[in-house]
Design a protein around this nucleic acid. Structure first.
Lengths: 336, 336
DNA sequence: CTGTTAGCGCTTTCAC
DNA sequence: GTGAAAGCGCTAACAG
C-alpha cells in the first residue's frame, strides 16, 4: 500500500494525500477526514525511506558507546532516547567496543545510513576520526567524555569540581590519608577527577603521596585489584576515593571479601558516580552523583538544535559549545 | 557526491559504478580499479537511503527492550549487535518502558522506517500487537520472554530446568526450607522458574509452603522488600532462591544491612542469572547462568535466517520456532 | 484548496 | 563488459 494507492482510493492526488499526512494547514477539513479515514482503513504506513530520500533527512541519529552492557552509558542513552522520542527521532545504536578503530568503522556506516546527527561517548581520548562526520556536515555531540584532538559540542559533568567537593568533605570529616583509585588517564574525565582530588588534597594541606594513588581502567576488576594493592601498603589509606562506579564496586567487593574472612580493615570508600546499587555495601561514605540521564537529554537536545540550525542556515557552522553539568554530593554512611 | 558524479569523473556509466560498488563479477579488473580509486579520492559514500528505496531492504533491524539501563537486556543486545554486525546490519534501539502500549507505538515507527526485522524482549505477557509486524510481513523474533497470545519465533532460556536444577542441588545440599522470590507472574519466564522451583520442591519431598513464596517485579527493590518479609516470618527459610539477578541483589542488600547491624540471620541465597557482580556478597550459593549474549546472537541469526527465507521465498511463512538455551549451574560459596 | 510534474540517488532489467 | 532507461515512494515547487 503506497501513498499513491490512497490517492486512487480517495480520488485525490498524491500531493493532497501527502499534505494531509503532513498536516498541511491548507487542506480542507473535509478532504482531510476522507483521506485519513482511507489511510486508517487500508492500514497504510508512510514509507520513511522514500520520504528520507526526498527530504534528505532521516529523523534518525546514531548513538555510539564503548559498550552497551554498562548502566552508566545506558542511563545516558535512556536520557537521549527520551528526548529524541519527543521529537519522533529514532536511535541507531553502535557499540564501539572501547576501540577507536571500531568507532571509525561504525561512523562510516552511520554516514551511509545518512543519520541526521550522532551522539558519541568516546572510547578513547582521541577523536581525529570524528572529522568524518564534520566533513560530511553531520552534527556531532560528545557525551560524558571529551577528546583532546578534536573540538566538538559536548555535554560533560563537572568532573573536577565533583571530585574536589567530595575529597574536601572527606578532609573536613577528619580523614588524613585519602587514597585515590583513578581511571584510564587517557580519558579527560579520568584526568579531571584526578585533578579535583589533587587540588583538594593540596588545599586541605594533606601530602600528595603517590603510593596511595593508583590508576585503573574504570572497570570492576581493576577496582578490586587496586584496592588490594592499597591495603598491602605498610601504611594504607584511611579512605579511598574511587573515580567511578564500576571500580568502586570492585573495591568494595574486595573489602567485603576481607571482612567476610574476619580481617576487615578500617577503611571507607567514596566514589564518583551514584547508581542504585552503589550503597549495597557498608563501606560507602560519599558519592558524587552525575546526572546521567540529563547528560543524554542535553546531548540530544543540543544535537537537535544543531540539526535545526543546519537546516535553517546551511553551511554555517557554529563554534562548539561545551555544557558542563554539575554533580551532587551525597552522604551515605556517615564519616567514619 | 553521488554515484552519478563518480560515473562522470571516471567516464563510466552509473550502472557500471553501481556494479563495482556491489562487486559484480562481470566488471573488468581495470574498470574496477579505476572506479574504486575515484571513489576513494572523492570520499564518496553510498547513500543507503536511495539504495533501500530501490531494493526494499534497509539492512536495519529494530531491537526493543523494556529498559535500556539493564545489564541483562543489554548483554542480549550486545550479542545481537555482534551477530548483526557480522552481516552489516544496524540496530535501531527502542525502549518500551515496560509498557505494551509504548511497545505498540514504537513498532509502528519501526514499520515506517522499514526495518527488515525486529527483535523484541516483551514488556508484558501479551503480544497481540505484534501482529502489526506479521501483518506487514516483517520477521520478528522474541528474546528472553515469550507471550501467551501470540506465537512467534523465540529464543529463550530453559527457565524451568534451570530453577529445577538449582533447587534440587540445594535440597541435596541439605536445605529443607527453601523460600522463593519470584518475578512478575504475567511473564512466562517468571512462571517457568516458579514451576521449576515447585517441581524440585515436590520431587525433593519438601512441603510447598506459600508463606515462603513471594512474588516481586524483577527489580532490586522488590527483592529487598520481599527478603525482609521472609525474614520476619516466625519460621523463616534457611535458603532463598531468587528468580532473577536484580531481585537477588536487592535481597542480598537487605541481608548485608542486617549483618552490618550485627544481626545477620543464618540464611543463604541462590539466584537465577549470573552477572559479574552476582558474587559481591558472601550469601551466594548457586547461580543459574543464562547465556545472555548467546540469546541475543541466536535471536539475531534466526532473524537473519527469516529475512533470507522471506527474500528467497516471498509469502511463505514458516511456522514459529522456539529455541531453548540451557543454563549453567554454578557453585559459589559452598552449601552452608 | 488541489493537481501536475520533476526528481531525490540508487539498482536493475534489457539491450548491445 | 558496459550503457540507457525506468522506477522505487515520496515531497515540493509551480500553476491554477
Amino acid at each position: 500500500m503506497r501513498l499513491k494507492d490512497i490517492a486512487e482510493i480517495t480520488g485525490f492526488s498524491s500531493s493532497t494525500v501527502s499534505r494531509v499526512l503532513q498536516d498541511d494547514p491548507r487542506i480542507s477539513g473535509e478532504t482531510k477526514k476522507l483521506v485519513l479515514s482511507a489511510v486508517r482503513k487500508s492500514g497504510y504506513r508512510v514509507n520513511s525511506v522514500a520520504r528520507s530520500l526526498k527530504t534528505n533527512t532521516t529523523e534518525t541519529i546514531g548513538f555510539m558507546a564503548p559498550e552497551l552492557a554498562n548502566d552508566f552509558f545506558m542511563k545516558v542513552a535512556e536520557g537521549a532516547e527520551a528526548e529524541l522520542g519527543r521529537h519522533d527521532y529514532s536511535m541507531l545504536i553502535c557499540n564501539s567496543r572501547e576501540s577507536a578503530a571500531e568507532e571509525k568503522r561504525q561512523l562510516t556506516l552511520l554516514l551511509e545510513k545518512r543519520v541526521d546527527g550522532v551522539i558519541i561517548i568516546p572510547s578513547s581520548g582521541r577523536g581525529e576520526h570524528f572529522s568524518l562526520l564534520t566533513d560530511f556536515d553531520v552534527p556531532l555531540v560528545l557525551a560524558d567524555r571529551a577528546v583532546e584532538d578534536f573540538s566538538a559540542d559536548s555535554v560533560l559533568s563537572d568532573n573536577e569540581d565533583g571530585a574536589y567537593k567530595a575529597v574536601t568533605a572527606l578532609i573536613e570529616g577528619g580523614y588524613r590519608r585519602i587514597g585515590f583509585i583513578g581511571g584510564n588517564m587517557e580519558l579527560n574525565n579520568a584526568k579531571e577527577r584526578f585533578a579535583g582530588y589533587r587540588r583538594a588534597v593540596m588545599d586541605g594541606s594533606l601530602t600528595m603521596d603517590e603510593e596511595i594513588i593508583r590508576f585503573g581502567d574504570f572497570h570492576m576488576n581493576s577496582g578490586y585489584k587496586l584496592m588490594s594493592d592499597l591495603l598491602e601498603l605498610p601504611s594504607p589509606p584511611d579512605h579511598v576515593f574511587v573515580a567511578n562506579h564500576f571500580m568502586h564496586i570492585g573495591a568494595a567487593k574486595h573489602l567485603a571479601h576481607l571482612s567476610r574472612e574476619g580481617r576487615g580493615p578500617k577503611i571507607r570508600l567514596s566514589s564518583f558516580d551514584e547508581m542504585d546499587v552503589s550503597s549495597i555495601f557498608g563501606f560507602l561514605t560519599l558519592t558524587v552523583a552525575q546526572p546521567m540521564e540529563e547528560i543524554g537529554r542535553r546531548a540530544a537536545s543540543l544535537l537537535l538544535e544543531r540539526i535545526r540550525e543546519k537546516k535553517e542556515n546551511p553551511g554555517k557552522r557554529k563554534k562548539p559549545r561545551e555544557i558542563r553539568l554539575s554533580t551532587d554530593l551525597n552522604f551515605h554512611g556517615g564519616l567514619n
